[in-house]
Structures are given as structure tokens and as C-alpha cells.
Design a protein around this nucleic acid. Structure first.
Length: 104
DNA sequence: CGGCTGACTCTGG
DNA sequence: TCCAGAGCCAGCC
């Protein structure tokens, strides 16, 4: 996989997130050089299906799903995360202290 | 080639 | 703890 573009790097990084874990936009941006959190969010919004990227494991720094679209997508992400053993509190957030995954 | 866009993050009150 | 404003950069018309 030749991750020459920033998008490719972002998708590659997201692909490294293991089952039951999540990464924040800022974390991914920090791992990738010359990449900002907005870039990650923009990349996630245009995730190519063929990449099979676990986009649902990418959340914001508050530990909450940040999908702007109020359609079934946001609920789908939540269901996918719950299916991986993650718990959402009354505020619709997860415990980043437990679920955040750090790439070395 | 120039401007608009966006699933964010940080800081202060 | 919650709200508002500013910064940031690649990709796509």
C-alpha cells in the first residue's frame, strides 16, 4: 500500500486500530506528519468503501461520535462500537481512558 | 491559479 | 461542566 497522499496515510493509520479500541482525530493527526485534526475528519467523511477502513473507531477528543449527518450513520457507528464491547454513557460518550489506543 | 469546505482541537470565561 | 471563538491545511471545484 503506497501511502503517498495524506489521505492514504490517514486510512492506513485508521486500519491499524485494533478491535475494541478507538483513536481520536487529533491522535491520528499527531502520528501523521503535516496533518491536522480537520484533515482526518475530512478524510473520514470521504472514506472510500473499498478501503474497508474502520472509520467507526475514529471519534473526537471528547470521546463522542462526531458525525455531523443526523442520519442512520451516527447510530450505525454507535452500534458498531457497542458491538465491539464499548459502553456509551448518558452523555453519549465512551471512556477514552479505557478505549483510546496509542500507536507506537 | 484562487477560493471554499470540513466527521476537529485548544483556550478562556 | 458547558459555550463561543480562532487556528489549521489538503483536496476539490
Amino acid at each position: 500500500m503506497t501511502a503517498s497522499t495524506t489521505y492514504e496515510k490517514i486510512y492506513s493509520q485508521v486500519n491499524k486500530i485494533p478491535y475494541g479500541k478507538v483513536m481520536t482525530y487529533g491522535q491520528i493527526a499527531s502520528v501523521i506528519d503535516r496533518c491536522t485534526a480537520r484533515m482526518v475528519g475530512y478524510a473520514m467523511a470521504r472514506v472510500p468503501i473499498e478501503k474497508k477502513v474502520p472509520w467507526h473507531r475514529v471519534i473526537n477528543s471528547k470521546g463522542e461520535v462526531s458525525i455531523r449527518a443526523h442520519g442512520d450513520i451516527c447510530m450505525e457507528q454507535r452500534l458498531l462500537l457497542e458491538n465491539e464491547g464499548m459502553i456509551f454513557n448518558d452523555s453519549g460518550r465512551v471512556d477514552l481512558a479505557c478505549y483510546r489506543w496509542v500507536d507506537y
